[in-house]
Design a protein around this nucleic acid. Structure first.
Lengths: 333, 333
DNA sequence: CTGAAAGCGCTTACAG
DNA sequence: CTGAAAGCGCTTACAG
C-alpha cells in the first residue's frame, strides 16, 4: 500500500496535522519539523493522494474535455495545447469522445459533473440539437466552449477567427483571378461553419461577385460527400475556377476528386482549405490553407477556464485568435 | 451546490446509510424505501460523487493513459478503442502526453499513481532509457503496456503482430518482383521496431535474398529523416526496387521524395507502409500498407487491464493481434 | 429492514 | 509552533 501522512506522523511521533502542514510548507511550522517530515516522506516514497485532498477542499485538479473525436487532427492538436497549459497549472485532463452524438455528450457531461472535475472544456457535437445539458452542467461548474461554440450559451467561448480566415481564403482565390468560387461548407446549424460561410460571402460581396446558392454545398465535415457535392456544383457551374473548403480534409479530397475528373489544379481550378492539417502537405499539389493556431486555442481555453474556476463564474472576454494564410501550390498566386 | 445523500436523507427523515444502500439497490432495503429514495434523488437531480465513493472503497473508476502524443494517428485511434471499452465498464480515461520524453513520463506516472487512477495503460516514450519508474508504479497498481512494449517488464503487453506484419509486407514486395528492398526502420532499441525489422529480414531470408545493412536506415519515426535516408540508400544501392517503411508516415514521405527524385512508383520502386493511417489514402499513388487493428489494440488493452484490476496483479496472456495486407497502388501486384 | 459509527486520506479552523 | 477534532461525500461492518 501507498504511504499516507499517518505513516509519516507515526514514524516521527507527531500529529497528522503537523505532517500535512509541513508537506504544504505552511509558514507556521518549524523549519526543522518541515525538514524532518520531508525527509521521512522522501524515504517512504510518499505521494499525496490528490483525490483525498481534493475531496476535502472541494477541488479535483482535473479538467474535463468533451470533444467529438480526438482522432480528428484539429482536436488532437487543440488538446495538446490544453494538456500543456493544464499540466503547468497542476491539472490533469479527463478526455471524453462523443462521436458527434448528443446522447454521448449528455452522458459524459453528467458523469463529469459528479465531482470528477473542476471545470469543462467542450466542443459541441454535430448531432447536438438541444443544449439543456450544457446549461445544466454550467450550474455545477464553469464551462468553456471552443471551436464548436454557440452564442445562445452565456459563457466563455474560444474560437479561431473563422469569419476572417474564410474571408482571407476567399479573397486569396479572387486575387488569383477566380470568379466562380464554390464553398464546400459545414453543417448549417454550426456557428463555426456559419462564420466561415459568412466570411466567404463577405469576400465575394466586397469584390462585386454575387453569391450563388448553387455554388454552396454542405458536406457535413465528411470527405465522402465531396465528390457528390463537386459534381452537383459543376453541373450548374461548368466554369468553376475556385473552391474554398470548410476544412483541410475536404480541401484535400476536393483536389483528389477534381484531378480524377481531369481538371488541372491550380491552372483550371484553385483549391484552398482551412486548418493547416498535416494532410495538406501530403496531397499534390500541396494545399494552400488558413492556419488556425490550434495549439493556442487549447492553451487559451484552459487559461480562461482556470480563471473562471478561481473567480467563480466570471465570463472571460478576449481577443479572437487570428488566422493566417499558408500559401502552397493548390492556388494561383 | 450539488445535492448529497445527506440532503436526501434529511428530506425523507431517514439515515444516510439507508439512502446510500437504497441508491445502490442493496437487497436488504425495503422496496418502498428504495423507490422513495430514488424519487427524491431524481427530484433533487442527485448524482453520486464518484470521487468520494471511490475514496472510501479505494477505487477511482479512472484509468491512466500515458502516450507519446495523441496527435499521432496511431495513438488517437488506439485511445478511441480504449475509450469505448472503458466507458462500457464505467471507467473514464485520464490521458497524458509525454512528447516522447522520459522526464515527462516519470512526472505523469508519479502524478497518476497518487490515487488518481486504478490502473495504467502506457506506450513507452522514444526518449525513455531506464524503466525504473514503470516498475515502481507497478508496485502501486497494474500496468498494461501497448505498442511500445518492453520484454524486460513483467506485465501484460499488447502489440500488433509486428513481426508477421512486416514479414507480410516484405514478402508482398518480393512477390511483386523486388529484390533490392530497403527498410526505413524505427529506433533500434524499441521492441516494435525490432520486431518489424526482424520480420523484414526473415522474409528476405526465406526468399534467399541476403540482408544488406546499407539497405536499412533508422528514421527515428520522423518523416523529416526520410529524404536523407533514401539518398544514402540509393547511393550504395542504385538498383533499389522496393521500400518497406516502419509506418505509414514514413511510407508516404518516401513516395513524395522518390517521386520528386524522378522515380516512378511502383513501376521502378514499390513502396509499402505499416499502419493504414488516413494519409495512406491521400498520397498518389495510394500507399499499400499493413493494417494494424488499432481500435482493437485499445479495446483489448483496457479489457486486460480491468481484469488485472479485478484479480490483483494477474498477468494476462493472450493471442497476438493479427495484421493484414491492404493492397493499393504503390506496389506491383 | 434501518441506523449509528467508523473510516477512506487529507485539510483547516479552533485551542493552547 | 503543534495537536485534537471536525469534516469533504460516501460505504459498510456492527447492532438492533
Amino acid at each position: 500500500m501507498a504511504t499516507t501522512i499517518k505513516d509519516i506522523a507515526k514514524a516521527l511521533g507527531i500529529s497528522v496535522s503537523t505532517v500535512s502542514r509541513a508537506l504544504n510548507d505552511s509558514p507556521q511550522i518549524n523549519d526543522e519539523t518541515i525538514k524532518a517530515v520531508k525527509a521521512v516522506a522522501k524515504k517512504f516514497n510518499y505521494r499525496r493522494n490528490n483525490v483525498a485532498a481534493g475531496l476535502r477542499i472541494n477541488k479535483t485538479f482535473c479538467l474535463g474535455v468533451v470533444v467529438p473525436n480526438i482522432g480528428i487532427y484539429f482536436y488532437s492538436r487543440v488538446i495538446s495545447g490544453m494538456q500543456k497549459a493544464a499540466s503547468e497549472a497542476g491539472y490533469q485532463l479527463l478526455i471524453c469522445q462523443t462521436d458527434e452524438e448528443e446522447a454521448n455528450e449528455i452522458k459524459y457531461l453528467e458523469s463529469l459533473s459528479n465531482g470528477r472535475v473542476d471545470g469543462i472544456l467542450m466542443a459541441i457535437s454535430k448531432g447536438t440539437n438541444k443544449l439543456n445539458h450544457v446549461k445544466q452542467v454550467m450550474e455545477e461548474m464553469p464551462v468553456v466552449l471552443f471551436d464548436r461554440t454557440d452564442s445562445s450559451i452565456d459563457t466563455t467561448q474560444v474560437e479561431a477567427d473563422d469569419f476572417n480566415g474564410a474571408f482571407l481564403a476567399t479573397k486569396h482565390l479572387i486575387d488569383g483571378g477566380a470568379r466562380n468560387i464554390a464553398h464546400l461548407a459545414g453543417p448549417k446549424n454550426m456557428q463555426n461553419s456559419k462564420n466561415r460561410l459568412n466570411g466567404y460571402k463577405e469576400a465575394l460581396r466586397q469584390n462585386d461577385i454575387s453569391v450563388k446558392q448553387n455554388l454552396i454545398e454542405n458536406c457535413d465535415f465528411d470527405r465522402h460527400n465531396v465528390e457528390g457535392a463537386l459534381k452537383k456544383i459543376l453541373k450548374s457551374n461548368p466554369d468553376l475556377d475556385g473552391v474554398f473548403a470548410v476544412n483541410d480534409d475536404l480541401g484535400v479530397q476536393a483536389i483528389l476528386v477534381l484531378k480524377k475528373m481531369g481538371y488541372k489544379i491550380p491552372e483550371q481550378i484553385s483549391v484552398i482549405g482551412f486548418g493547416n492539417y498535416p494532410v495538406s502537405k501530403i496531397v499534390e499539389p500541396r494545399l494552400t490553407t488558413v492556419s488556425h493556431h490550434l495549439f493556442e486555442i487549447g492553451e487559451k481555453s484552459v487559461e480562461y477556464l482556470l480563471k473562471m474556476i478561481k473567480n467563480k463564474d466570471a465570463k472571460i472576454s478576449h481577443e479572437p485568435l487570428v488566422s493566417e494564410l499558408i500559401l502552397r501550390e493548390s492556388t494561383k498566386h
